[in-house]
Design a binder for these strands. Sequence first.
DNA 1: GATGCTCATGAGAATCATTCTCGCACAGGG
DNA 2: CCCTGTGCGAGAATGATTCTCATGAGCATC
Lengths: 130, 130
Amino acid sequence: MTEAPRRQTRQRSAVLALLDDQDGFRTAQDLHALLRERGDAVGLATVYRALQALVDDGLVDVLRNEGEAAYRRCSPVHHHHLVCRSCGRTVEVADPPVERWAARVAAEHGFADVQHQLEVFGTCAACAAR
Amino acid sequence: MTEAPRRQTRQRSAVLALLDDQDGFRTAQDLHALLRERGDAVGLATVYRALQALVDDGLVDVLRNEGEAAYRRCSPVHHHHLVCRSCGRTVEVADPPVERWAARVAAEHGFADVQHQLEVFGTCAACAAR
DNA sequence: GATGCTCATGAGAATCATTCTCGCACAGGG
DNA sequence: CCCTGTGCGAGAATGATTCTCATGAGCATC
Ligand SMILES: [Zn+2]
Ligand SMILES: [Zn+2]
Ligand SMILES: [Zn+2]
Ligand SMILES: [Zn+2]
């Protein structure tokens, strides 16, 4: 009952490699289309499976805010995102104070197993220019 | 081309009244089922439309994290949520520091039109007990 | 309270992202 | 190289949300 072994395939490598080339969050459908353009085609279902595995392994972050889910290659340490809502460009940011605040306010109300999610959205300089 | 006039109907009143009786976030499907049980049935599409209108009017908050969207009657002032992931019970909380932090970190990276969303999830005392 | 112009409703169809099915391919340990 | 279980892919299935369109009902006006 330990963790499942993770087999290395061309498809999973392709998905991870593509994610490494992306600046911001991309949807599964986008990634699928990009892979097709790039030449190494991967089945759509497989893209979803690969992304799910990467999320489980903590290599990829997922954002579910508007309709379709978006994925991004991220560092494994806890962080939050500053996301451009126009082009998707993303900056990883950290805010230690909010970590403590979340834990404290949850405890005050008797909540356990606390998690939190914080995302900041805006228009990046490049997108605001044009 | 000001705001659209909002017509008062039995269905919209029923949706809002039901939301007032709820402690936490509820999905559109749940609300639809509850309305049916309650007696005053409302079409599913209408429930969605009513909820959308309420969100636009700022009377209801929406949470899109896991699969289906969940709605809750909320106060109109800016706030965040402490949500029980088991029963949905929700407490509105505020954190002025994070408001400033979000604005500052966004400005530092050249982002404009900044918005943020912060939610805290946990297991409430009642749900942890059993 | 009757009239008319619109917007609202609702049943079902349509959309669309995501997941499932299942026969076949292949990674990887022995 | 062989075996075995895991991963793949094409298409079907699922399920939430939205759209269509004919009918019904606010609400301002007379
Ligand atoms: Zn991240
Ligand atoms: Zn955090
Ligand atoms: Zn709220
Ligand atoms: Zn805030």
